[in-house]
Simulated scan of single mutants.
Amino acid sequence: MTDPREMPEPARQVADAPKGNWVDRFAPAATVPYLRLSRADRPIGTWLLYIPCLWGVALAAMADSFRLWDLWVALSCGAGAFLMRGAGCTWNDITDRDFDGQVARTRSRPIPSGQVTVKQALVWMAVQALVAALILFSYNRLAILLGIASLVLVAIYPFAKRFTWWPQVFLGLAFNWGAVLAYAAHAGTVSLPALLLYASGISWTLYYDTIYAHQDKEDDALIGVKSTARLFGDRSRPALWGFLTLTLVLAAAAIVTLPVTGLWPPLVALAGVWAFGWHMVWQMRRLDVDDPASCLVVFRANRDAGLILALFLAVSAFL
């Protein structure tokens, strides 16, 4: 394994990682390639995996109020999101190693740049998944079964770009599974509001990951990788507006169909949907799909958008 600290300056940082991130600045040299495999230097993905979990537990708590147990669900889902996002990204890099070496943004990743071998990456993936399993087994039976089932989606996603123009759907199915799992961890069941919230999250992923995919559309066209960014092309903005609208409609439907006592909780939650939507509209106004830098900034802004909705749902549950 090549020590990244001994590599030439351009190879010492992954191309799309924020400059001055904590991994590059503070992590011990031996751990840097593995943390990069886990995308620890790019925490936005962990946030986007974690936020639907917060939505799920808060929506479930709206029906019968928060419990002390929900604090554990919220905190442990954060740790689980970090670990499973890391395991999923490691698996993605293993399967995409040949593609990554041909794309400017990804050729500096640990496997194509020679910092980590495939065997080392497999071991690292297994370690992360096993630690995440310890967290999962603290939940109720339904949540455990849902967590195990999610592994199928995680395994399939890296291959989706090879056989469909809609790989973002598979990402959405995997990334928003936490909404259903966290709902089940609180309620012990999965009802229509949880499924509507899950569908809203999938549409949200189609929105933000189509934006993200526009960074690589030229390289993807050269190597034959499919994406919704390539599928929609010049029609991407109307498609993004469609995903934005569908996200909000489904989120509102999840709230309206939830059996809640009192008027204020659903009103506050619906105000959160409005604020969530306002933030996405603001994103669309500054987005230039032909500017990779603009796409990356707007993509990352979805952390704040998702947290806005999570905050309003949490306040509604306390009400």
Rank of each mutant, 00 (worst) to 15 (best):
L248F: 10
F66K: 00
Y157K: 03
A239F: 13
V57T: 14
A252P: 01
I144V: 15
D290V: 03
L263Q: 11
D304T: 14
L206G: 14
T2M: 15
A314Y: 07
H279Q: 14
F26L: 14
S294Y: 03
L151D: 04
L196W: 01
G88E: 04
L296T: 06
D288K: 08
W177S: 08
Y183R: 02
D304Y: 15
A221E: 09
G56K: 03
S316W: 14
V14Y: 07
L311E: 00
D16Q: 13
L267A: 09
M284V: 11
A29S: 10
G80M: 12
T164P: 01
L258T: 14
W177N: 10
K119E: 15
I255F: 05
V123F: 14
T189K: 02
A275L: 10
L319Q: 09
P158K: 01
Q215F: 00
T106K: 00
N21E: 02
P112Y: 03
L263F: 15
Y50H: 10
A121C: 11
L196P: 01
A133T: 15
G56D: 05
F243I: 05
G224W: 07
D41Q: 06
K161C: 02
L35T: 11
S227V: 06
P8Y: 08
P292C: 01
A87N: 04
A126Y: 03
D96G: 01
M84K: 05
G172A: 01
A301D: 13
L195V: 15
A213E: 06
R285W: 15
G20V: 09
G224L: 12
T205P: 05
N21S: 05
G20D: 09
W166H: 14
A129N: 06
F163H: 01
A133K: 12
A213D: 07
H214E: 02
A79E: 08
A305Q: 04
L195M: 13
Q128E: 10
L196I: 02
V152D: 05
P158N: 05
R285H: 15
P33Y: 09
Y157W: 00
V131H: 07
A269S: 00
P158Y: 06
S191N: 15
S113Q: 13
A30V: 14
L309N: 01
G114L: 09
R286Q: 08
T228N: 04
D93T: 02
C53W: 03
A81W: 13
V260T: 02
